[in-house]
């Protein structure tokens, strides 16, 4: 990759102050990471290792004191439209229609209505929600809601897209479809993405690189490159792609060793 990285994280640590004990929870330990343009980076790690903490810091939702984090060359100070977040679930506004949820970022930026509607329609089509423009979230299935959430973030055109287990709350069948679709969307939009997941398969299927976090305090244990062209990443072909299975098993082993360690001590 050439050029300046889109996301640069240097020596980032985080301690949650514990109001009750006065002691603190050491959640992140000395993270160094760079994400370049058009890269899809997946992070896996045992539960409670600090993945969400990391993402929230990048999103600007959690202030940090130790280390540095820059997006597009500027230090992160609070949330902003240059970093779009897709949350796990229930984060789209229940009182807005699909269309108005997706266009919300543009509305906030005061983009004129005509232009907004055009852009929104593109993304509605892209995520396959045509025909549902005027529905309210409670009329949609879980998978469709997450599509709205993805489209909402895409539509705001962030420098980097942050996704925290976006497909964890949908059923297995839908998840596979959504993963395939996300792939297609990534190909079409060439977005830079930081993707957090519990699922090793998901990480290996989607990521160009997969970062494995250790258990708490989370630090980067290793990094696994998955060198499969995007066009080839379709579930029906992937299952017997040796590169995929190898990467998956590799990551699985690394994660498992973290989890087992956890149990042993």
């Amino acid at each position: 990759m050439t050029g300046e990285a889109k996301l640069i994280v240097q020596g980032l640590s985080h301690h949650y102050p514990d109001e009750y004990t006065g002691e603190s929870v050491h959640a992140l330990d000395n993270i160094d990471l760079q994400i370049h343009e058009n890269e899809f980076v997946a992070i896996v790690g045992p539960s409670g290792c600090g993945k969400t903490t990391f993402l929230n810091i990048i999103a600007g939702l959690l202030p940090y004191r130790e280390g540095r984090a820059l997006v597009d060359g500027t230090e992160i100070r609070g949330p902003g439209p240059d970093r779009g977040v897709v949350f796990q679930e229930h984060a789209i506004l229940p009182w807005r229609t699909v269309k108005r949820n997706i266009g919300h970022g543009l509305e906030i930026r005061r983009v004129p209505k005509a232009e907004r509607e055009k852009t929104v329609q593109e993304y509605i089509d892209l995520v396959g929600l045509s025909g549902f423009e005027d529905r309210y979230p409670h009329e949609l299935s879980g998978g469709m809601k997450q599509r709205v959430a993805v489209a909402r973030t895409l539509c705001a055109d962030p420098v980097i897209m942050l996704m925290d287990e976006p497909f964890a709350a949908v059923d297995a069948q839908t998840r596979i479809t959504l993963q395939d679709e996300l792939n297609r969307v990534v190909m079409a939009t060439r977005k830079t993405i930081l993707f957090i997941t519990h699922s090793v398969e998901e990480a290996a299927f989607l990521g160009d690189r997969c970062i494995v976090f250790s258990r708490r305090p989370g630090h980067i244990k290793t990094e696994v490159k998955i060198d499969i062209p995007r066009e080839d990443r379709v579930w029906k072909d992937m299952v017997d792609n040796p590169k995929f299975t190898e990467a998956r098993d590799n990551i699985l082993r690394l994660v498992r060793s973290e989890v087992t360690n956890d149990v042993d001590s």
Binding site: A59, P79, G84, L93
Partner: peptide, 14 residues
């Protein structure tokens, strides 16, 4: 829910 607020904040909302 807090996450709704966070959603708007990350879209650049004031």
């Amino acid at each position: 829910p807090k996450v709704l607020i966070q959603g708007v904040q990350t879209l650049g909302g004031t």
